[in-house]
Computed example of a mutant assay.
Amino acid sequence: MSVRERFDSDIQAVQEQLALLCTMSIAALQRSFQALVEQNLDEALEVIEDDSDINHLEEEINDRVILLIAKQQPVATDLRRLMVITKAASDMERVGDYAVNIAKETIRIGQEPIIFPMVNFEAMCQKAVEMLQGIMRAFMEENTALAKEIADLDDYVDDLYGATVELLIRAGAEHPNKTKQISHLSFICRYLERSADHATNIAEHLFYLVKGRHYELNS
């Protein structure tokens, strides 16, 4: 195997690690939200415990990229690719963190009946998951057209977030004895919105990789 073939093989391996990290983080987000809906505190605890696996995988990706840069001294597209992989890994690790945060808020709510409809929350979570799954497909295929389509979906999540926050404020005024629960739900709403933002971040990283310049896709 030539030096170039070995380098390409190493890049492919680290991209496969990134794909695994994405799968784990998206699954954590889905699990944490399902734990909220079902008020399954045991499942919420498992999401928190499993986050160390996501953190360790991100660290492995970063270490591997640093080693490749040190050994191969890549330039141009190869260097951009490695740097973008670390940025995407960081974004997906943050999604895992938001899953943990949702799980923690779920535990704080406990078994107290949730007074606020989950319809908007479910829509936000579904769209965030759709965006994250789609952007990783676009990333692996280096498909900037698909990446732009996914980034554009963030407006929908932002609008739904704003509308839901207004409804939560109104619910808090109508149920002053439930302000703690409303506060927990408000945080969860924010974590879902931020998860979708990270899909846009990865779309911007992909544009930088392919085009060699920075783009703001949802300013």
Rank of each mutant, 00 (worst) to 15 (best):
L57Y: 00
D10L: 11
M131L: 13
K148G: 04
L217H: 07
L68G: 00
S186T: 14
L68Q: 13
N101A: 08
R194P: 01
R31Q: 14
K180I: 15
L209Q: 02
V165M: 08
E149Y: 05
S9D: 07
F207S: 02
I109T: 06
A203E: 04
T23R: 13
R6A: 13
R190L: 14
E105V: 00
I114V: 15
R170I: 06
V14L: 12
S32G: 06
G212M: 11
K178S: 13
A19W: 01
D152N: 09
L153A: 06
A128F: 06
K178D: 15
F139H: 08
C22W: 02
L29V: 03
Q39D: 07
N120R: 13
E149D: 14
M131E: 15
L160N: 12
F187V: 10
D51A: 03
L132P: 13
C189F: 00
V165R: 05
E58V: 04
I48F: 04
L192E: 04
I114S: 04
Q133A: 05
A103Y: 02
E5N: 14
T106S: 14
T23I: 05
V14N: 07
L160V: 09
L217Y: 05
A19I: 10
C125Q: 11
T77M: 12
R94G: 00
N177G: 05
S32V: 07
T86Y: 09
L192M: 11
I182Q: 04
N218K: 05
D42V: 07
T144K: 04
E16G: 14
A70W: 10
V129S: 10
V37E: 04
G172D: 02
